[in-house]
């Protein structure tokens, strides 16, 4: 039990919270056909983090987070500018901006050397979920021991706070958000500040993506922004039900993916484990595939 608490519980909780924080805004990204925005933001996090480190010389979590948020905001503005000036479709503008910024981030990493900073391309892709351990865990009593709890990986508290914040914002702004995504013209007529609502959705996406990126890497972040919500979208025709289902899928794939990554290769007789983040993303992708199989028997649904 102590081993489970020390080695498995923190990464499972972090993965589940990251999945939750991403899946919530992900629902509305998909409904407003901005799925690529999640992709874009997750990628520009990398140059943001590297630039923040180069500018401040600090690798503290909040410095990195701030750098990533600035980069995310900057890229959102750039995407809008490119879309407006070029007349390209937003998806193309996003692809241009985020691949350029991600590539620039990789170059920046290479040029400046990765020795001093605990960041490399593999971490950027897969995060370091397995390294989130809780050394003070000695047994179940540690769960109520403040001293031991204080020693939990800091990502856990940060993600819990951000997930709770996003969930709260979603509850409070549910009506204007749903109305804006469904029919922005009508929403404006009802006095809703549509641009602010969409900016808020972008900000929530950026916040979730940045927090998740630090723990689980960009692949899982993108997967969690899109896959659970897309799966839920296929299975229901109600907005609230879709969001609840997405949350359930996100948490399920986090737990299942982590467990499978640790044990499945062993069950299959191999002497190694695989990346938890990679497995979680694979599981959530498989869930989407399964949902597609189930629903393709019925009327075709449009994503």
């Amino acid at each position: 039990m102590a081993e489970f608490l020390a080695l498995s519980l923190p990464p499972i909780l972090v993965a589940a919270l990251a999945a939750l924080a991403c899946a919530l805004p992900g629902n509305f990204l998909i409904l407003s056909r901005r799925a690529m925005l999640g992709d874009a933001i997750s990628h520009v996090v990398l140059p943001g983090i590297v630039a923040a480190f180069l500018l401040t010389g600090s690798s503290a979590g909040w410095v990195m987070g701030a750098g990533a948020l600035v980069a995310a905001g900057l890229s959102a503005l750039m995407i809008e500018a490119v879309t407006r000036r070029s007349g390209m479709e937003p998806g193309a503008a996003m692809a241009v901006v985020f691949t350029t910024m991600f590539a620039a981030g990789v170059l920046l990493l290479e040029v400046t050397g990765t020795g001093a900073i605990h960041l490399d391309v593999e971490h950027a892709l897969y995060g370091n979920l397995e390294s989130l351990i809780w050394l003070s865990a000695e047994g179940l009593h540690s769960l109520v021991d403040p001293a031991a709890l204080a020693d939990l990986p800091p990502q856990l508290g940060r993600l819990a706070l951000i997930a709770a914040g996003i969930a709260l914002a979603l509850v409070v702004f549910w009506r204007p958000l749903a109305m804006t995504v469904f029919d922005p013209v009508f929403a404006r007529g009802q006095g809703i500040r549509v641009r602010w609502v969409m900016a808020g959705l972008t900000a929530a996406t950026a916040l979730a993506a940045v927090a998740a990126f630090q723990a689980v890497g960009s692949i899982l972040t993108i997967s969690m922004l899109i896959c659970p919500a897309a799966t839920a979208r296929l299975l229901t025709a109600g907005l609230a039900r879709q969001v609840w289902l997405a949350v359930a899928f996100a948490v399920t794939s986090a737990v299942m993916g982590y467990v499978l990554a640790g044990y499945a290769p062993v069950w299959l007789g191999a002497g190694f484990t695989v990346s938890a983040a990679g497995m979680i993303a694979t599981v959530s992708g498989a869930m989407l595939g399964l949902a597609l199989l189930v629903t393709s028997q019925r009327a075709p649904a449009r994503l």
Binding site: V172, R175, A178, D183, Q190, G191, A237, L239, Q242, A301
Partner: peptide, 26 residues
């Protein structure tokens, strides 16, 4: 043609949106 007709929302809820000025956020 102005909206996404595959949006997961029921007729009742769409009509209710017309009362947003009265219901507000919460």
């Amino acid at each position: 043609a102005a909206v996404d007709w595959s949006f997961p929302v029921r007729v009742f809820d769409v009509v209710l949106m017309g009362a947003y000025r009265r219901t507000g956020l919460l």
